[in-house]
Design a protein around this nucleic acid. Structure first.
Lengths: 327, 327
DNA sequence: GAGAGCGGTGTTAACGTAAACATCTTACCC
DNA sequence: GGGTAAGATGTTTACGTTAACACCGCTCTC
């Protein structure tokens, strides 16, 4: 900057004014400064700016297994919402959602230059285990943190309820369930919604099969369930597992939806083009992302303290061809 | 920091030493400083550190439509590789891969605190249109930038060749093709590989159908191709479009692979569990991510100038159940 | 024509940290 | 016991930027 100032024959402050786009600079001066910038290849040092300004223009995001699931949808939505507020996003992908890994990610990020932190799927982590830097605005997409940090949750139980009611409404006597991993809060909520809805309808609650969100685990579950002829309807805790399940059912010669109806959860981009197209509970990932960023903005910009805020994003049942009345 | 120093009865420099983990601090002093940090909720200011140190510990990543495709796989791999080198990643998701959008993203990021920049799928952007800050290390996953920036490419033409040869080897007379968007370099390369392989084998080159990477466009292509009984083998430029295509074929009553064999590209996580499980060209996303980060590290750490480096990552044909000899 | 006001520009200081150097204390050696 | 070395701690300074204020010269007003 000093070099640019010297070359343009002005003070550093004037260079600063030009690079900030301030109006009170004579056109002729501005041109001279811009030329000098160009010639010297100057670009402003953002560390110094951040130091001066006290803000970084960046939010941290802790996500889990980015490539899988709706995770990337949420991240995309957060990135987009952050951009709309002029923020960029620093991403940390943790391998497992365990308390240790998430805490390590928090530790890594808290030494980074961030104005706020979004945690997507904290799973087993507990509010106390996080060791967050004090005064760092946080937003979590897990209702378990209500009372500690502002949270945005999808209506998991409502979604499960709608899925099960849809299947019962088609005439199935009961609905089997492939769960997510036991340490996942959304998985537990979906399972709880499934169980409660069956119970409320006075139906048997068959033993659930445990998966791990992956299509492979859905496939394994499907191989187990395919042998049981009384299984006519399965609610899978996410779409990937539903795809794996359908794969196994097809392989075993069972028709979907003729022999078995299948419902997923998430409405991933491929759900519509699986075979058969998958009936599923659509999550509004964009809304979750927007809301998470909004919670951060209210803390960063307005200085609000939001520990008790809890937003619930509604879901929507999308009926496609993977469900039908039982034969 | 000054407050911590005062409370602990030491100088700011000693506080710095403690927070840097320097060894030459008496245990008793360290404990006092740590206690003061705890009490005051001190955490070091990373802008100041970056200013002092001249580095940010962050790479920028420009990606396109994160939620879709292998994109998120590459991003995940980059994030992971960067982490292994102690770097975090700042993500910018551009809506379209147009020159304007990518340039805008570069402009946004170059005002951010980054030590290097990864551009994934620059597509229509040209080296000159990017307006990169001078001296910013860059790595691009697009061979078009060879000579300007170091590049990592997947062996697109080789992958297409293997897909087509696989189908011809099964006995198909020719292979139809659903392309990616025309402004995408990888799409063009895959199409070129397809065309060249057919030509080399002395087969007819049927007119390709243009898609846009989305499953929906594959579905549209499938509806068109399903009516043509001479179509027995289709190579789709990615797995999503293959899924859409298969959906359309199934809907039209055409069996896969009985009537029509289908090959995709990417080997997305769901490819194995589509119905039928999809034969596809597996990209080594992790290798691409690692290589991209490695190119940045060589520039950042060793000061190398790498404009002419071009790494080609090999692909692998994964044969599953969506391909078979023609009836 | 003197004072006020304003646009353009320069000067000073501060943001929080860590390297470099200076100083102090302690332990050890002959 | 004096000298030396090593370890612990403090002081100074600079990183690059911008807010706040100071200044200059011009125009406008009465």
């Amino acid at each position: 900057m000093a070099d640019v100032a010297a070359l343009a024959g002005v003070s550093a402050q004037t260079v600063s004014r030009v690079s900030m786009g301030a109006s009170n600079v004579r056109d002729e001066t501005r041109d001279r400064v811009l030329a000098a910038m160009q010639q010297l290849g100057y670009s402003p040092n953002s560390a110094a700016r951040a130091l001066r300004y006290g803000q970084y223009g960046t939010f941290g995001v802790i996500a889990h297994r980015l490539a899988r699931t709706g995770e990337s949808r949420t991240v995309e939505a957060v990135v987009e919402a952050a951009r709309d507020h002029g923020y960029t996003v620093t991403l940390v992908d943790v391998e497992s959602p365990s308390s240790d890994d998430v805490s390590a990610a928090v530790a890594r990020l808290s030494h980074q230059a961030i104005d706020g932190l979004v945690i997507i799927r904290a799973e087993t982590a507990t509010p106390d285990s996080l060791l967050l830097p004090p005064r760092l605005p946080v937003a979590v997409s897990d209702s378990r943190f209500v009372g500690h940090h502002p949270a945005v949750g999808t209506d998991q139980t409502g979604g499960a309820q709608r899925a099960v009611e849809h299947l019962l409404g088609l005439g199935h006597r009961t609905v089997h369930h492939v769960t997510g991993p036991e340490d996942s809060r959304p998985a537990l909520q979906r399972a709880e919604g499934w169980r409660a809805t069956l119970t409320a309808a006075g139906r048997d609650v068959p033993p659930p099969v445990t998966g791990d969100w992956s299509a492979g685990s859905g496939y394994a579950a499907g191989r187990a369930l395919a042998t049981q002829s009384e299984v006519t309807a399965v609610f899978c805790a996410n779409d990937e597992m539903a795809a794996g399940l359908i794969h196994a059912l097809h392989e075993a010669g069972r028709d979907v939806p003729g022999d078995v109806s299948v419902v997923g959860f998430d409405d991933i981009l491929l759900a519509e083009h699986l075979w058969p197209p998958l009936t599923t509970v659509a999550q509004d990932f964009a809304a979750v992302g927007r809301e998470l960023v909004d919670l951060l903005m209210r803390q960063v910009r307005d200085g609000e303290v939001l520990t008790d805020v809890h937003t619930l994003v509604p879901v929507r049942l999308v009926v496609r061809a993977s469900t039908a009345p039982p034969r």
